[in-house]
Design a protein around this nucleic acid. Structure first.
Length: 381
RNA sequence: GGGUAGGUGGCGGAGUGGUCAAUCGCAGCAGACUGUAAAUCUGCCGACUUUAUGUCUACGAAGGUUCGAAUCCUUCCCUGCCCA
């Protein structure tokens, strides 16, 4: 797996933050990195050119959605995700585990999901048809999609699920991760561009389960390691405590991916806890819903106070939206449900996070990350 | 001048004797959103205040019938359409 060499460039002395470079067949990824989410092979509202311009290095796509439509076979026939969507930088696909289980927990009375030892039977949210995901099929689908980094099929249990349930889900996830690895190794033999498989640590908010899960996943010795099942309803302290408790068990030389996080403050805290990679829908979804980040915190563009705001969304911001438009204009577009408004806020939010990551990398290299983080949070929160 | 339909909260538009401060939609105001079933969802939306099974003023205006009227009667005002 030399294709995915991870080089640590700097380590912070005051925190567990690190700065590195992850190699992939589609280029290098500088970490810490935020990866915009493009579930259905598009980061909603933006073109790949715009993503590139705002500083995105790697994006996500989703197995569940692309499997249901159009089908991974079609993506494969069209030349794989990179070619199909015209993005030749790195791509990561999520395994579909999160979707399958969030469907299960969203619909209470009508279970759409049946968990079995060898996988999960679920009903499509689109047409109700029945499907089955197993560790093996999740690997095969992701092989067809052709991302650079693929994720093991896991079960994400709700934050406050009973401990016993969380433990069982974790054990299933362990078992599945092993099966994923076997299938992945088989599938990689015939590939030109290799794919890195990341396993996903589970264990809810239980420290001992998390440590157990971390040890298990580390032992699989895969190219990277992900932490799942956080930022799903637990408190921030609970999340940071979990990161603290597993940190000593994570290998230094492998990239660590905290799945589904998050907000600017979560990103900085998690970096301080040694995380290298992030993804989250918040930047893009919230943008479409009218909220945006600035150094001074979170704002809602729909609020009447922006009606006469003739300055950009954020002072000194270098994003396309802020360089060219006033908050008043963006508000008007959002109020009118004009899609250009959604695009402008999406560009701003994603740029805000990619810029925050770039600054973090610089400060880690300079040894000033901790004070940078404290300064940022003081102003932001 | 005659006939006819109608005048309801910022707008559109329900309601046609009590449970109506008045369905609903829009607009407005605010909130939520963390590996995207999300350009979605939620709350408020006559005035006032101790924000409540609270008080007040209200369905063109003025009278009347009734225990009780946005709803029935009378007159008036206004608007659309048709006829002269």
């Amino acid at each position: 797996m030399n294709d995915f060499k991870f080089e640590i460039k700097a380590e912070d002395k005051e925190t567990n933050a690190r700065c590195g470079v992850l190699n992939t067949p589609h280029g290098k990824i500088k970490t810490p990195v935020f990866m915009p989410v493009g579930t259905k092979a598009t980061v909603k509202t933006l073109s790949p050119e715009e993503l590139n311009d705002l500083g995105a290095q790697v994006i996500l796509a989703n197995t569940y959605h692309l499997y249901l439509r159009p089908g991974s076979d079609i993506v494969k026939r069209m030349g794989g995700l990179h070619k199909w969507m015209n993005w030749d930088k790195p791509i990561l696909t999520d395994s579909g585990g999160f979707q399958v289980f969030s469907l299960a927990h969203k619909v209470k009375n009508k279970p759409l999901v049946k968990i079995k030892e060898n996988g999960v039977e679920f009903k499509s949210h689109i047409d109700g048809s029945t499907h089955f995901f197993s560790p093996e099929s999740a690997m095969r689908i992701q092989e067809e999609l052709g991302a650079d980094i693929i994720m093991a099929f896991d079960e994400c249990s709700p934050a406050y699920a009973a401990r016993q349930y969380t433990k069982e889900a974790m054990e299933r996830t362990h078992n599945w991760a092993k099966l994923c690895k076997t299938e992945w190794e088989k599938l990689q033999k015939d590939r030109k561009d290799q794919q890195a498989l990341f396993p996903i640590i589970q264990g809810g908010i239980h420290k001992d389960l998390r440590i157990e899960s971390t040890k298990f996943m580390v032992d699989l010795d895969l190219p990277g390691i992900a932490i799942g099942g956080l930022a799903v309803g637990e408190t921030k302290d609970e999340m940071y405590n979990i990161l603290d408790s597993i940190n000593p068990y994570l290998p230094i030389q492998k990239p660590r991916y905290l799945m589904g996080v998050g907000t600017p403050e979560d990103l900085l805290e998690a970096i301080a806890h040694g995380i290298d990679m992030f993804d989250c829908v918040m930047a893009t979804r919230n943008a479409r819903h009218g909220s945006f980040w600035t150094c001074n915190g979170r704002n809602t563009i729909k609020n009447a106070e922006f009606k006469f705001e003739d300055t950009p969304l954020m002072e000194k911001c270098k994003c396309y939206s802020c360089k060219n438009y006033t908050a008043s204009y963006v508000r008007h577009l959002i109020m009118e449900k004009e899609m250009f408004g959604q695009r402008l806020l999406t560009i701003h939010n994603l740029h805000f996070l990619t810029d925050l990551m770039e600054k973090s990398r610089d400060h880690i290299k300079k040894g000033t990350f901790d004070s940078f983080k404290k300064r940022f949070l003081k102003r932001y929160l």
